[in-house]
């Protein structure tokens, strides 16, 4: 029992690691931050895998052909800027370790500029998306012609009818796609012929509404019935100030012949189709962008202190710790860029 005292004449000091408390704590913070990203990425993974490949009764494809395609080249350049800022960060540390104060300031400033550029580009990308009707709430309804233009720009070769199927839901109908047996007749057909909306658009609207009339309360494909002016009340900009729900009720109550004008009201009101792609895109890039923004502030403080001559070789670990955070943000972007933009 008492052998312990005699067996250990020397004192073990496991507490003496070479690294500073700050460096260890930053690694721990990185672990916990990584876990937060893993939470979001896990959600992204599940939602994306379970998203249907093509329009179905319960959902949109992950990124429908008519949604705004992302500009890979521009975002790739932005990624390049972030990698540059990562290498300038290690250069700053190396300069400090070599006793090169001017180099430290120069490289810190470059790192900060790189980060600021990255956030600014992200801001530009977001505003561009919002301008095109893609928000966290979903995708704005576009008309078939715009959808065709966007689809062509993204390199897909859908026919107009296929595109309408993507937008309004694929429905089984009799006849061939080119000569469907369920073409509307009567008053609706007149309306159709009067050119208010296209053949495919009318067809799918008609079928979608009929599905609901058959007491099938499952949601039909997003597009017309399942537009949403989501979340925050008053986001529609309908001239009459109707909410998304009121518009929907109006649509369901309207005579078939009147529905075309209701749909146009929806478009005017900026109704959106809820989309998991949109939700994930904004939350993931937003969370990452927040990290970059925080990093830019962090670097800014370091830069001011560097101009005051606060850093020497002896306390270079302060720069190293900031670098750890910055490289972690870069590392996460490698993952996000691959998962969101490339795959």
């Amino acid at each position: 029992m008492s052998s312990d005292h005699h067996a250990l004449p020397h004192i073990e000091t496991e507490g003496n690691f070479e690294f500073t408390n700050g460096k260890f704590a930053m690694w721990l913070l990185i672990v916990s931050d990584a876990m937060a990203f893993i939470g979001f990425l896990g959600a992204y993974m599940v939602l994306r895998i379970s998203a249907v490949g093509e329009p179905s009764l319960t959902g949109l494809p992950w990124q429908p052909a008519w949604s705004l395609p992302m500009d890979l080249i521009l975002t790739g350049l932005n990624t390049f800027v972030l990698i540059c800022s990562s290498v300038t960060m290690v250069k700053a540390l190396a300069a400090l370790q070599d006793g090169n104060q001017a180099g430290l300031k120069k490289y810190l400033a470059m790192t900060m500029l790189g980060g600021a550029f990255f956030v600014s580009f992200q801001y530009y990308e977001w505003t561009h998306f919002v301008h095109e009707g893609i928000t966290i709430q979903g995708m704005k309804l576009v008309d078939l012609d715009t959808a065709m233009t966007r689809g062509a720009a993204a390199g897909n070769k859908l026919t107009k009818l296929e595109m309408a199927a993507q937008m309004y839901g694929k429905r089984r109908f009799e006849g061939t796609p080119d000569a469907p047996a369920a073409l509307p007749t009567g008053k609706g057909a007149q309306d159709f012929r009067s050119g208010n909306f296209t053949e495919a658009e009318y067809l799918f609207l008609e079928l979608a509404v009929r599905d609901r009339a058959n007491a099938d309360l499952r949601p039909v494909q997003g597009g017309i019935i399942h537009h949403t002016a989501y979340g925050v009340p008053g986001t529609t900009n309908d001239p009459k100030g109707r909410t998304g729900r009121e518009l929907q009720e109006e649509l369901e109550a309207a005579e078939p012949a009147q529905r075309g004008s209701v749909i146009q009201a929806h478009r005017a009101a900026g109704s959106r189709v809820a989309s998991l792609f949109c939700s994930s895109f904004y939350v993931l890039t937003g969370f990452h962008g927040l990290h970059v923004a925080v990093g830019v502030l962090y670097l800014g403080i370091l830069l001011i202190r560097a101009f005051q001559g606060a850093y020497t070789r002896a306390n270079s670990s302060i720069i190293e710790v900031a670098g750890l955070y910055w490289h972690f943000v870069d590392l996460v972007w490698v993952l996000l860029f691959m998962l969101i933009y490339l795959i």
């Binding site: 709430q137 997003g222 399942h226 949403t228 925050v232 939700s279």
Partner: peptide
């Protein structure tokens, strides 16, 4: 108004039905 946990055919805070 994102739709991470909104199952299809649910109504959340005054929104119309979503196909989220």
């Amino acid at each position: 108004g994102s739709s991470f946990f909104v199952p299809a055919a649910r109504v959340v805070s005054d929104a119309a039905q979503a196909t989220g």
